[in-house]
Nucleic acid binder design. Sequence first.
DNA 1: TCGTCATATGAACACCTGTTCATGTGTTGT
DNA 2: ACAACACATGAACAGGTGTTCATATGACGA
Lengths: 114, 114
Amino acid sequence: MENIQPQKGHICDAINQAAEPDIEVLYDLSELFKVFGDSTRIRIITALTAGEMCVLHLAEHLGMGQSAVSHQLRILRTSGLVRPRRQGKTIYYSLDDDHVREILEAGLEHILHR
Amino acid sequence: MENIQPQKGHICDAINQAAEPDIEVLYDLSELFKVFGDSTRIRIITALTAGEMCVLHLAEHLGMGQSAVSHQLRILRTSGLVRPRRQGKTIYYSLDDDHVREILEAGLEHILHR
DNA sequence: TCGTCATATGAACACCTGTTCATGTGTTGT
DNA sequence: ACAACACATGAACAGGTGTTCATATGACGA
């Protein structure tokens, strides 16, 4: 990284203005979006928007192997986006938070309205 | 990928219900979130929330090299999240779309409120 | 208890991503 | 025209990511 020192003072609205708002929060934020940044996981989340579903049906729905889906579900679970409910041998997954739908909506707004 | 055929019919709310809503849109959606899924880009976007800024000031603000920032700006520009404005030698970047702020907000809601 | 079903997990592998270094492009002032 | 400045771009390299294969866990029924 070089030593940066622009010669003439440019007029940048945001410069010299208080430090970054919670740099650690911004890191967590990027980690959250990283979870949404995979088409398999987005498809899982979208599917769960309609209601809870078990792993094999998710795999069938996505046309993928059970293992791959299970791995992705672990990531979604760890991130607190999805919640498991055990009933006998099968485990039903559902969205853990209404924020998840809102984030999805916000993204769709950008994709569609332009 | 294995041949999946669950033995007994589980009760999954969303199964057998109309096909996926535009699988291509979901792919684009994941591509969008992928752009948000990097701390450097999130920091750039957040910085631009306060107003336009030139590349060197962004680099200074982030404590990174000019090249790295420029590479990330190209990704943000290509994704339509950020817009350049040339004035002499320097180029000022700003958020291209109000949707960007909304997506950021939706993500923050999830991070903070829990 | 034994076999089967539903899911989870670990290792391995190919692929993708972000930074750095070096260099190129375009603009300004002299 | 030339040097300096602001920014962009290409190559290269380390580190991360998602799928597959094989195997483990845990629950149910006979």
